[in-house]
Simulated scan of single mutants.
Amino acid sequence: MNFSELKKSITTITESKSKTSNKLQSICDLLKAEVDYYNWAGFYFKNGDKNELKLAEFAGKPTEHVIIPFGKGICGQVAVSNQNFVVQDVTEQNNYISCGFQVKSEIVVPIFVNGKNIGQIDIDSHSTNPFSDKDEDFLEFVCKKVATLFDN
């Protein structure tokens, strides 16, 4: 896994002529396939005018968490804080929504369009302590590219 090469692939996907939903699915599939400790990759977006997130495209095991209220869980907290949230061990988080016993860590990075948080990328890992600053930088890059799909 090489983040520089993955950035090129992400750019190619976001600049393709596909529908936005197909681009998002391709990004999820690529991340899950190419980063061995990314066991689930998905996008959540603000659900209209509601203070909740709605699951969009993802790669990995289906989740029952299709709607997440703002403030609940890691994703819901990022919707409120507008900050990246890296959880190296989910057992250390009080406000964590379990997506299954296999998930040991999670990283969530918000997507901004014109300064407004419209959603986020959510990565779950079956390993404890897998994420580094390189993951955070890479996922920020992914979110900036995804933001261009919604910047009308």
Rank of each mutant, 00 (worst) to 15 (best):
M1L: 02
N2P: 11
F3D: 09
F3L: 12
F3C: 00
F3Q: 04
F3S: 07
F3V: 03
E5W: 00
K7W: 02
K8S: 07
K8V: 13
S9Q: 15
S9M: 11
I10T: 13
I10W: 09
T11K: 14
I13S: 04
T14Y: 07
E15D: 13
S16Q: 13
S16C: 10
S16E: 12
K17L: 03
K19C: 00
T20Y: 03
T20N: 13
S21Y: 04
S21K: 13
N22T: 07
K23S: 09
L24H: 12
Q25M: 12
S26I: 02
I27V: 12
D29E: 11
L31Q: 08
A33V: 00
Y37R: 01
Y37H: 13
Y38V: 06
N39Y: 04
N39V: 02
W40P: 02
F43T: 02
F45S: 00
K46E: 08
D49M: 11
K50Y: 09
E52I: 05
E52F: 07
L53A: 03
K54T: 13
K54L: 14
L55T: 12
A56M: 15
A56V: 10
E57S: 12
E57G: 00
G60T: 07
P62A: 13
P62Q: 02
H65L: 15
I68E: 09
F70W: 13
G71N: 08
G71I: 03
K72W: 01
G73F: 12
I74C: 01
I74L: 09
C75R: 01
V78N: 10
A79W: 05
A79Q: 02
A79K: 05
A79T: 06
V80H: 04
V80R: 09
N82V: 01
Q83V: 05
Q83S: 07
N84P: 09
V87C: 14
Q88L: 08
D89R: 11
D89K: 12
V90T: 03
V90W: 08
E92T: 15
S98Q: 08
C99S: 07
G100L: 07
G100T: 04
Q102F: 07
K104R: 13
I107F: 05
I107C: 08
V108T: 14
V109G: 11
I111Y: 08
N114I: 03
G115K: 09
G115R: 01
N117I: 06
N117M: 10
I118D: 10
I121S: 01
D122F: 02
I123D: 04
D124P: 10
S125R: 04
H126R: 00
H126A: 08
S127L: 14
S127F: 08
S127D: 10
T128G: 00
T128N: 00
T128S: 05
N129L: 03
N129T: 01
F131P: 10
S132D: 14
S132H: 12
S132Y: 03
D133L: 11
K134D: 15
E136G: 00
E136V: 12
D137E: 15
V142R: 05
C143R: 14
C143Y: 09
C143K: 13
K144G: 06
K145P: 02
K145N: 04
V146K: 06
T148H: 05
L149S: 01
F150P: 05
F150Q: 06
N152C: 10
